[in-house]
Design a protein around this nucleic acid. Structure first.
Lengths: 180, 180
DNA sequence: CCGTCATATATCGGGGCGATGTATACTATC
DNA sequence: GATAGTATACATCGCCCCGATATATGACGG
């Protein structure tokens, strides 16, 4: 389940350009599987080289050729094989949590700012989820609904946890400074 | 807040070898910020080159020298500066969720297996959290308690969400196969 | 006696991320 | 009407990181 495989999966919904896929990563996959041009374009090139996708180059005036990719029969088989790995990982890389481990070394005002920024980020995600739900969700595969609900639930929990427990990082800092 | 900075932060608790830091990554930081030898050793070398840590080489018979690292005054200042970035990121990279987006292309039995494996992983994390809590938590900085609580809360929410919503991926698949 | 774990180091290749660059055309804003 | 921004569309480069692997030895258990 690397970027290549996810691109392949996205192409089961129909042909697309690298630019199209980037938009899909941003709008619906971004919150749990990000990918930029630096990952997508090389991935599509490699998939084409392996014969897992076909590439139709449509010339454009003044602009670079539009490269429309479509999944091939071999690509479909490759994807089905990849989907048989029953131990996909789920990793978190949080500079936020790492930083909070060292909150006692930070200025209280900075700790507050970090927490507020995180809450703002979560709010942005919730807005994104609502936008997705406002669209046509009926023709979605069931997995998409599961994943969207997952994101919404975790976002809500994170928000609540931060609000309910930020006193651990802030009030306690003040107590320490009072005690010293 | 890259691996280098986190190592620097860990060294504020006292001197340590790369091996020691790896153990700390595994036991307490692993669930939100993983790092292997391939990240830690180069990070420590770079920190030493920059003068942010000192390195005492203790010869050992038959074994490679034990390199004990300690944070320097410049290192402490560098860390404090790094901790003033009030927009640390929090990223998820989930092959699990990516895979579930394509659940409709998977064999129902494989979907079940993936969900069960994820639940088992979460259970392992919860065991880890309990082990940490069983240790001496009193001398911990408040941030550690916040981060541990965060991990426990999210793990619980994930577990509940998967159990409550797996029917979206499984029953519905059966309905589809009945309908076809 | 053998396997495996713990201690302790280090490197290598592949992968991915963010930033940047190149072009053009349309659309706001002032 | 000029200027700035946004959208389309491609591509690459360097840095960082992750997993796997290699090396060496002593201890402990089956």
């Amino acid at each position: 389940m690397d970027v290549k495989t996810v691109c392949l999966g996205m192409l089961t919904d129909g042909e697309a350009t690298g630019y199209d896929l980037k938009k899909q990563f941003e709008s619906s996959f971004g919150h749990f599987f990000a990918a930029g041009y630096g990952s997508i374009y090389p991935a599509l090139s490699a998939l084409a080289e392996q014969g897992l996708v076909s590439c139709e180059e449509i010339p454009q005036e003044g602009k670079p050729d539009r490269k429309v990719y479509a999944i091939t029969t071999e690509g479909r088989q490759f994807l089905l094989d990849a989907l048989q790995n029953t131990s996909p990982c789920h990793k978190v890389r949080s500079e936020f949590l790492a930083m909070m481990c060292f909150a006692h070394l930070m200025r209280p005002a900075d700790v507050e700012a970090v927490l507020d920024n995180r809450l703002a980020d979560i709010e942005r995600f919730k807005g994104m989820f609502d936008e997705i739900e406002a669209g046509s969700m009926n023709d979605w595969p069931p997995g998409m609904k599961f994943v969207l609900g997952f994101g919404k639930t975790i976002a809500g929990t994170m928000e609540r946890y931060i609000n309910d427990n930020r006193y651990l990082l802030t009030e306690q800092s003040e107590e320490q400074s009072v005690a010293s």
